[in-house]
Design a protein around this nucleic acid. Structure first.
Length: 425
RNA sequence: GUGGCCAUAGCUCAGCUGGUUAGAGUGCCAGGUUGUGGCCCUGGAGGUCGAGGGUUCAAAUCCCUCUGGCCACCCCA
């Protein structure tokens, strides 16, 4: 019988990988908390309706990418395909806005989409994100874009390309959609299959056809359809970005098709990401979402970033810090009779706050010291027959290859001193 | 969901147009005499060649199906 494999499109995080993840999550929390964002967590599954309404029934995500199941009460539940809808629901349901407005929250966790897996795209993937809920103001859009940019920069990823656009409000977009259709309909015969489908389903997507860029070149731009108010709002965002010293590329073809999106839309691009996965993540203003979910109309803005993609680039750029060693010290017995003493010394060191591995296995000391090396320990505590008899322990500095014998009472101090000693070479 | 490439030891890979007991490096375990490591030497364990079926005297090698990975597209993080 073949061993059971991991399900398709999932990843196991073994220790080296998970330390990279911890680094990323801690960096994200540190950066966005410096902007006053606080951590929230919402369920990994929700009522299917939340995503049908919150992501949009006609989108691919909802049409064919959701992991949906029926629970024992006959309710339809879905593993979350994205974070915003659930976090917004949680914040609104918890009435957090009654306390502080806007509410600034961040989150991190797994999302699920059953798309064909590829590098940087999985069935279960992780996102980190922030949401700023409760006010419509250009400066908040700028704040969100800046926070994401600072985070990516803190990971050591240079050359991030921020793409921004404005989708205007609902009326602007309606007007634009008509202009777009008026332009594209006469060209229908010359469009690729995908684009003919987009013409019906999601006209805004026509603009970034990858097969034939020619039709889009002369197409109308949303920026030309913006009302004076919307245009002014967008100008405020752009000048805010400039004032914050953030270089952003104006991209009039950057779109989001859903009705509850409004005004600012943006993506973080990185040159080393190829083809269809050029974005590290993106975000924008979604003033209409709360209402769609049945809550009081509430403006909001936020971003979501793909952890696998960030790490893909970080590994490529070699900015991921090395995994910390498993422990600081290894306690080795020399022969089986000293095993109990060694275990006791290990316990004392742990109680003093050190990270300690006990090696009381029945094998030769040289193997134990070699294993201690591989664990990355800086110190070894050796207990043999002599030490046991005299109530002593040998504390060895594995980096400097020096050692001294100390009384058991002075062990913690001696190990601490060894760990604090400078690394040779 | 559509199309293409791929799948050999824990890891990285070799194995010519089908031919006997499938190899290397690395890692792992052990030994190089008495309780001292990152190097070196020696030995050992570990693979039903992704799974199932077919062609053949003979399949890791050819054919089909499935599973998984990668790439392009759709879409997205």
């Amino acid at each position: 019988m073949p061993p059971i494999a991991a399900p398709r499109g999932t990843n196991d995080l073994l220790p080296d990988a998970s330390s990279a993840w911890r680094w990323l999550h801690e960096t994200h929390a540190r950066v966005v908390e410096s902007f006053g964002y606080r951590l929230v967590d919402s369920p990994i599954f929700e009522h299917t309706e939340l995503f049908e309404r919150g992501v949009g029934t006609s989108t691919d995500v909802v049409e064919k990418q959701m992991y949906t199941f029926t629970d024992r009460g006959g309710r339809s539940l879905t593993l979350r395909p994205e974070g915003t809808a659930g976090v917004l629901r949680a914040v609104m349901a918890g009435n957090a806005l009654a306390e502080v407005r806007p509410a600034r929250v961040h989150y991190a966790g797994p999302m699920f989409r059953s798309e064909r897996p590829q590098k940087g795209r999985y069935h279960q993937f992780q996102q980190v994100g922030i949401e700023c809920i409760g006010e419509r103001a250009a400066e908040l859009d700028v704040e969100v874009i800046e926070a994401g940019w600072r985070f990516i920069t803190a990971l050591g990823l240079a050359d991030v390309d921020i793409q921004v656009n404005s989708l205007g409000d609902l009326e602007d977009r309606q007007r634009f959609r008509e202009a777009l259709l008026a332009y594209y309909r006469p060209l229908a015969d010359r469009l690729c299959d995908d684009c003919r489908r987009r013409l019906e389903v999601n006209p805004l997507r026509l603009l970034d056809c990858k097969r034939d860029a020619a039709p889009a070149a002369a197409a109308p731009l949303i920026t030309d359809s913006l009302s004076a108010t919307s245009a002014a709002y967008f100008d405020d965002v752009l000048s805010g970005l400039r004032a914050a010293g953030i270089a952003a590329t104006l991209n009039p073809r950057l779109v989001r098709g859903l009705d509850y999106y409004a005004h600012t839309a943006f993506e973080y691009w990185h040159g080393s990401l190829q083809g269809s996965q050029n974005a590290l993540g993106g975000g924008g203003r979604y003033d209409g979402l709360a209402e769609v979910l049945g809550f009081a109309s509430t403006p909001a803005t936020g971003y979501a970033l793909g952890v696998e993609r960030l790490l893909l680039v970080a590994r490529q750029m070699a900015t991921v810090p090395p995994s910390p060693p498993a422990c600081e010290a290894v306690v080795c017995s020399v022969e089986p009779p000293q095993a109990a003493i060694a275990a006791d010394l290990a316990r004392q060191l742990r109680e003093a706050g050190l990270r300690v591995v006990l090696d009381a296995l029945d094998r030769k000391l040289d193997r134990k010291l070699r294993a201690a090396d591989r664990l990355g320990a800086s110190a070894a505590v050796i207990v043999g027959e002599d030490e046991a008899r005299d109530g002593m322990a040998t504390v060895r500095d594995l980096r400097q290859r020096t050692q001294r014998r100390v009384g058991v009472a002075g062990l913690v101090a001696a190990v601490r001193a060894t760990l604090a000693s400078p690394v040779a070479g």
